[in-house]
Every structure is written in C-alpha cells, then in structure tokens.
Write a protein that binds this DNA or RNA. Structure first.
Lengths: 179, 179
DNA sequence: ACCTGAACACCGTTCAAGT
DNA sequence: ACCTGAACACCGTTCAAGT
C-alpha cells in the first residue's frame, strides 16, 4: 500500500459510517476491519476518536463549502442558486441515505469535544454566510440551512427521499422572481 | 420503593440522558446507577435497549402531542399558535439544552429497529397534521417542523439559545395577519 | 514510519440464583 | 414480582514489541 493510503481509506470509510450511524455508531474496530488493519493501527493514525472526528469534520466542511460555492456561483437566479444548494443535500441522501456529517454530529453535540463542536459550528456559520450573500438576509439564510438539516432528519426516519425532494422544491419556489 | 416506581424512574432518567446524548450515548449501567439498581434489573423492566427506546418514544410522543394540541387550541391567531408551538422547543432547550427526543433519535435512524423508527416517523406525521390544521397547507406545516428541528440541531452545537429564539420569532412573524 | 497482540475498564445481553 | 452476580463478546485506549 502507498504512503498515507491507509490513513486516507480510514477517513473515507469513517465518513460513510459516521454519516450513517453517528458518532457512537462507529467503532475503531469496524474501521480497521473495513480497511484491513487492526484497531491499534487506527489509533496510530488518529490517537483518539476525537482526533479522528476533528479531521473528518474539517475535510467534510472544506469539501462541502467548496462545492456549495461553485454551485451557487453557477446559478443565475436566486431560486436557481437555492435549488442548487438544496440539491447537495438530496445527492447526499441519495447515496444510501447519508446525513450531512455536521448535521448528524450536531445531534450528538453534548458528547463532542470543544474543538470538534466549534468546527461544526463553524461549518454552519460559513453556510449561513454563503447563503446570506444570495438572500441578503442572515435570518433567511439560517432558515434555509435549518430547514434542510431538519428535512434530512425527517427523511431518514421516514425512509422517504420524496419528502426531502418536495422540501427542496418548496424552498426554491419561495425565492421565485427575485433577481 | 413503590410498585412500578423503579420502572418509572428508569424512564425519567433515560429520557433526560437520551435527549442529551442520543441513543448510543446512554448505557443501561448509567441508568442503573442513577436509579440505584444494577444493570441486570434494568433489563428486567426493558429486555433490550430497543424495548426501552420504544416505550420512551411512545410516552414522549403522547405527552408532547397533548401539550402541543392544548397550546395551539389556546392561541387566538395563526401567528400565536405557531409561536406557542415553537415555544415548546425553546422550553426543552432551556432545560439544559435538551433536544427533542424524536429529533435526536431520527439522527440515528439507521440504528433503530423498525418499530422504533415507525414510532418516530408517526410522531412527525402527527405534528405535521396538527400544524396543517392551523396553516391549511401540509408542506407549510412540514416546514415549521423541519425548521424547528434543524434550529435545535444548530443551537445545540452553537450553544446558543439566542439563535433558536430568533428562529422561533421569525417563524411566527411569517404568519402575521392570517386569521 | 507503520503495524500488532495483549491488556484495561467499559458496553449490551443472558441466565441461573436469590428474595 | 423484582433483583442480583457472573459470564459472554463487544468497545476505546494504551503500550511494549515488532518490521
């Protein structure tokens, strides 16, 4: 195996597992099994679970925000930009019902270390800021984020992408005729 | 101790712990310690963790919906009814940052048994139905629920009741002048 | 630099045994 | 009817030991 490849595969498998099962639903032994090493090796790359979550949150946040920015930049109207942004959540859900990594970790906020908690909070803050640029208003931007995160929560428990789809449509319909 | 009291105290302690830490953040040994019995006794009352969660979800759902109905009945305008409903979430958050029980379990939907998952889905369905009676529209009702659940998620990770408070205000402002 | 086996205190669950 | 101790396979974490 190439240099740094095990570490990368642990992160890849970890993201999938955390987005499905949350912080406490994934074990270092599971990760080790999926990657083909022993759990002690996972600890070599990430001393504690918390170190692991921090890296996971950072790379998720970075990647998501980058995609979000480009999708918003490419939309012509406000409604189109919001729709493009919503579609990022739909796409994640379509990938075997994956929750937003930061959304599912937020639910378990009480068990997160302060650095991880702040990283997650920063993710939402950046998203709200990004949408504020589109919608003008910060509380309106917050609405879009909370609606989508909440909609994912419900869609997961309802096992229904349909509901998430209709929320996304309703959301962009709200901004028809602006800009 | 009185008849059935241990069972009741387990449920009480369990609800608090689950709403703080989620499904996997609470152990039968923790519950046993808080109540003053051994973990095997908790298993006597609730054979598996899943049995426990089902009862927890049922009684939470029942109690919440009852309160929600009465608070909506007592509001005069649509805005007042929505505000009263939102205040239920604010009050929960004020109680040491408690998440909605069904909201936090929804995040871990992938790890729930089908009966529990359906109970949670039923909770949201009933809430949406209740609000549909106020707002007329089902998708509008769904919006209120997803916004509030999402807002709780964010507020927990931001450690900020202020943000939840302003979401609640924005929400009821939306329905000013109706009815 | 990267991996491992063995150990620790934890977890859910079961069960035979007590009152 | 209600509780318990002891056991099982699991978990995160540590560490000395290997390559």
């Amino acid at each position: 195996m190439k240099r740094g490849e095990v570490r990368e595969r642990i992160l890849e498998a970890g993201e999938a597992l955390v987005r499905q099962h949350g912080l406490n639903g994934v074990s270092f032994r599971d990760l080790a099994d999926q990657v083909g090493v022993k759990s002690a090796s996972v600890h070599y790359h990430f001393p504690t679970k918390d170190d692991f979550l921090l890296v996971l949150a950072q790379r998720y946040s970075e990647r998501f925000l980058e995609t979000a920015e480009s999708v918003i930049a490419s939309g012509k109207t406000v409604a189109e930009k919001v729709r493009g942004y919503s579609d990022l959540f739909l796409a994640a859900f379509a990938e075997d019902g994956r929750m937003c990594l930061c959304g599912i970790l937020a639910a378990e906020a009480a068990d997160l270390s302060d650095p991880v908690r702040r990283e997650i909070a920063g993710f939402f803050d950046a998203n709200i800021n990004l949408l504020k640029g589109v919608l003008g208003d910060a509380s309106e931007a917050r609405f879009v984020v909370t609606s989508l995160e909440g909609a994912m929560l419900l869609a997961r428990v309802e096992k229904s992408p349909q509901h998430l789809e209709s929320t996304a449509r309703d959301l962009s319909d709200r901004y028809r005729g602006r800009n």
